[in-house]
Computed example of a mutant assay.
Amino acid sequence: MERTMSLSCVEIDERERLRLALSHDPVTAAYLLGDLEPSFFEHCRWFVATYHERICGIVLLYGGLSKPCLLSWGAPDAVEAIVRTFACEWPPGGYGKILNAHQHAFQDVLLFSGIERMWNMGLRQDLFEASIPSLEKPNVTCRLLNVEDSLSSILAIYEDYPGHYFESSQLESGVYAGCFVEGELVGIAGTHTYAPSVGVSCLGNIVTATKHRGKGYARMCIAFLVQELQQRGCKHIALNVNQKNHAAIACYRSLGFVFHNTAMDVVFSRVDGELDLS
C-alpha cells in the first residue's frame, strides 16, 4: 500500500528513458521495445508509473494500425495505477497484448473478449545454430517479400489463418519472408515489430497454406527470417504463440525458442457507465 500511494503516473515521450527501463527484460518487453523505433514511436502514447523516479510500469497505446492496441509491462501495482489514472483517455475499443500478471489491473475498466492465452518465447542462439543443418529441402527456396510481390497471393495464404493480424502496410514497416516450392508461395513468416535500432524483433503473422502444412516449410521460412533479422542487428528475437497451438509451439521449440512468460491477446472495450477510479 505504501508504494502504491507513492507511485507517480505520467505520460512521457522520453525514448531513451523508456529503452533503459524495458531493456532489463527484452524478451518480455520485445513488443514495446520495438515501438521505440522512430517509424513506430510517432504512433505511440507512453503512460508510465514511477517510484522514486524509476519507471516500474508502462502501458503503451499504439495507434499505427487500423485499430488501436494496448500493451503492458512492469509491476502489476504500477500498471493498475496507470489504468486508474489514464483509462479515461483511451479509445472505446481495440486490441490488447496484456501480460497475464496484469489482467486484474484492467478488470474494473476494460472488458476483455476473444481472449487467447499466449506463451511469450525468446530465441536461444545456441539452440538455433544447432537446428540449421536440418533445414535444407530440394526445390524449396526462401526469400524476402516486398510490395512488388503479388498481394493477392499473400492474402490467399492468410485466408487459411482466421484471426490473423496481417495488414498490407506491414510489408513496408516490417520484414516478411516467403517460402516457395517450385515458384509457388506456400508459407510466410513476418514480424509484428522490427526495431534494429534497439536490437529487437518480434516474429508474427506466420502461416503455411493448408495443403502444404506438416512438411517443414514453416521452419525453413522462420529460420531464413531469423538469420535476416540477425544480420540487420536484431539480437533479441521473440514471439507470442497461442498455448493451444501445439504444432506451432513444437516448430518454434525445434528452432531454439524457449518459454519465457505468459500473456494474453484480447479484444478490449471500455466498461460502460461512470467508473470509480479513485
Rank of each mutant, 00 (worst) to 15 (best):
F224R: 09
I222K: 13
A250D: 07
V59K: 03
G256F: 05
D149R: 04
S168F: 00
H192Y: 07
C9N: 14
V267P: 00
E116H: 08
E14R: 14
V83R: 00
R45Y: 05
T193M: 05
V10H: 03
C179D: 04
G183E: 13
A238E: 11
F106S: 06
I132P: 01
G273R: 10
K235V: 14
D25M: 12
C202H: 04
V109Y: 05
R84A: 15
L203K: 05
V198Y: 15
E167D: 06
V271H: 11
A248Y: 04
Y62F: 12
A247R: 12
A209D: 15
D13M: 12
S72R: 04
V181S: 07
I55S: 09
Y161M: 06
G187M: 02
Y161R: 01
V226N: 04
L144Q: 12
E42A: 09
H246L: 14
R143P: 08
T141D: 14
Y161H: 09
F47W: 10
Q230C: 10
T208C: 15
V140E: 07
V140L: 12
E80V: 04
Y165I: 04
L127S: 14
H104K: 13
K215A: 05
K211F: 04
L185Q: 09
G63W: 00
Y95A: 08
V200H: 07
V258D: 08
I115H: 01
V267Q: 06
Y31M: 11
G57I: 12
D126R: 13
G64W: 04
A177Q: 08
S150R: 09
G93H: 13
Q170N: 00
G114A: 10
L275Q: 10
F259C: 03
T193F: 02
Y31V: 08
